[in-house]
Amino acid sequence: MSGAPSRTVEYLMQVSSEVSPMSVSADGSPLPVTIVGGYLGSGKTTLINQILNKASGRRYAVLVNDFGELAIDAQLIESEDGNVINLSGGCVCCSYGNDLTSAMMELDTSAIDQVVIEASGVALPGAIAGSLSLLTSYTLSSIVVLADCVTVQSHASDKYLADTIARQLASADLILLNKTDLLDESQLVQKKDWVRSNYQSARCVATSHADYPVDLFLTEHTSRDVNQCDKTNDSETHLTSVYTTFKLEVKDKYNVQQLAANLAETEPGLLRVKGFARDLSGQMQLIQIVGRRWNVRPAPVSAKEGIVCIGLSADNLCSEGVSARAGLI
């Protein structure tokens, strides 16, 4: 399948829509949260604007440390009211200042489908994830950390910033090595090698202008989401030939947690995995993986077994190899 353009949403959706929306997860299940971190100038704002621009009916709450750091595309803004900016399509952007936990508790979760937290340039995404774990109405979907490929290495050895940058990158499920358009090929290879050798557990993808298919790290957990997605027919989410998509055959019963962990931990090329498999007791489970972070939740029996994987074409992944290594066959 390598090289053939495919459509992210379609593939991810295909899995979702094979079961009745209400049964994927009942309303009231925890809202997925994506934490976007990275030092100043790494491209967080660009990435978040992309998420908002591609919202296609999904209602995001974007929480920013302060509005100052997030220059939202003007055409998205509908109204502003103190700490809240209302955006088109039901999205909101709120500044949380010093008190993220309270801001999360105050969010009207019935009016949103997903939460994206923009961490400040010196904040530690891992610490944010720690406080998030206290809030039962949310679940961490992934930590995405951007790195400016030109400056990241010097920041990582900077007298003042070294440990902060290291802690940020080490907490990432997915590292977007951004601004690659500013480097030539050999420089880029060197930067990639540096990231991969220092932060082995995270996935690392090279991007320019934070251009990454955001659906690969945003996850859906709620029935509302599935309904919304059903209506979308977004032609902009074509995956380029940089990415490859393939399906894993799932027929047996498995230790699903172990299976998910295997896929997340032993397949550094996989960026996104979503699918259904039966656990040892026969109960259907939903597997979601973003980068190295995996999540398993009960799914309805009517769900159809099968797992969709998306990775980098360059990593030459194939269904057979991944299945074998993950213990599927």
Binding site: L40, G121, V122, L161
Partner: peptide, 12 residues
């Protein structure tokens, strides 16, 4: 204990 936290970036 590990080193503490920055509340502002050097550039800022």
């Amino acid at each position: 204990a590990p080193n503490g936290l920055w509340y502002i970036a050097p550039e800022q």
